[in-house]
């Protein structure tokens, strides 16, 4: 009886949680530990084989990588940080707030259900398009002379020699490419939340004398507080670690090396791309890990901040649309 109780109350929950805990350990905690560990070494393509074999006596430990990143001894770190900040803030504004405006427009102002669904699907298209195709599509759109978007913008007086290389146009392009694809996530969350607002509330506001615009501002927006917090939290965490579309459109590259990529020239080098390029293009694994470290720390910091400031725990509980 006592054994049965011990199993049911103490051991069984851990048994159920074991696969999840194993995943957390294997895919979350181990990479973080490995990132920190690697950043304290001089592992590169030259001595990687020793690291893999565990011949640690042939690996040196050093603080140089961390000094380069955290004390700014790498002269390019400041500019990478600046671009990352512009990138995260701008794309977040589009993903979290522009998608909100779009969602309200599509889910509330557009009365035809068929048209509303069509518009939502349209905005989902980039999400379901393979990344490479999506990247190529943008390259075609902004190709000087032949690209439709290039021609259209040229008509209104915006015609840089190259959308890919001329700052700030290249940075605007980076924001547009990532913002456009990211809008769909916010839209799914927001439109679901808008649709779950009881029609009685909207009807009550109409009977009370409110116009559609007033209802959107005073009824719908405040009721989307929790979905907004969720989208902001999720998207910030995603954005600080994302670089896929920048890599596809601009390529990598690092200054002072044989491989000077267009991402540097265009001013679109963000932290995760810089880390990727150092590690996988140049083979500076230890330095790549050191560059990734601020991203990891920022992510952990933001998670803790969301838990505290936004009440993330409350956010994750059910029925947060408050109706």
């Amino acid at each position: 009886m006592a054994l049965h109780w011990l199993f049911a109350r103490r051991l069984a929950p851990w048994l159920y949680l074991a696969p999840l805990l194993a995943m957390v350990l294997l895919f979350w905690l181990t990479p973080i530990g490995l990132t920190v560990y690697l950043s304290l070494t001089n592992v590169s393509y030259k001595n990687l084989v020793y690291f893999i074999r565990g011949e640690m006596e042939r690996i040196s430990f050093t603080l140089r990588n961390l000094q380069n990143v955290f004390l700014g001894k790498d002269p390019f770190i400041a500019s990478v940080a600046e671009v990352t900040l512009i990138y995260v803030c701008s794309v977040l504004a589009i993903n979290a707030f522009y998608s909100l405006v779009l969602s309200i427009a599509i889910a509330f102002f557009v009365r035809s259900e068929a048209l509303s669904t069509f518009l939502r699907v349209t905005w989902l298209l980039p999400r379901i398009t393979p990344s490479v195709v999506y990247g190529l599509m943008w390259l075609w759109l902004i190709a000087p002379g032949t690209g439709p978007l290039y021609s259209l913008l040229a008509h209104v007086g915006i015609h840089p020699a190259s959308w890919l290389l001329d700052k700030p146009y290249s940075q605007l392009l980076m924001i547009a490419i990532n913002g456009y694809v990211g809008v769909s996530f916010g839209m799914i969350i927001y439109t679901a939340a808008i649709k779950s607002i009881p029609t009685d509330l909207i009807n009550a506001a109409r009977v009370d004398g409110a116009s559609d615009f007033f209802i959107a501002r005073r009824i719908i927006l405040p009721l989307l507080k929790w979905p907004m917090l969720f989208v902001v939290s999720w998207q910030t965490l995603s954005l600080i670690a994302s670089y896929e579309y920048i890599l596809i459109v601009w390529g990598g590259g690092a200054p002072g090396t044989e491989s000077v990529g267009t991402a540097w020239a265009a001013g679109v080098m963000v932290f995760p791309l810089y880390a990727w390029f150092q590690a996988f293009a140049l083979g500076n694994y230890a330095y790549g890990a050191a560059i990734a470290l601020p991203i990891v720390l920022l992510g952990i910091g933001l998670i803790l901040l969301y838990f505290k400031v936004f009440g993330f725990q409350k956010l994750m509980q059910p029925a947060r649309i408050e109706v």
Binding site: A204, R206, V207, G209, I219, L223, E322
Partner: peptide, 20 residues
Amino acid sequence: IPPKDRNVGMVFQSYALYPH
């Protein structure tokens, strides 16, 4: 005429109070 110009008051089954 739209609802806002009819000067009607309505109580809904769910009460439809604005929760925020």
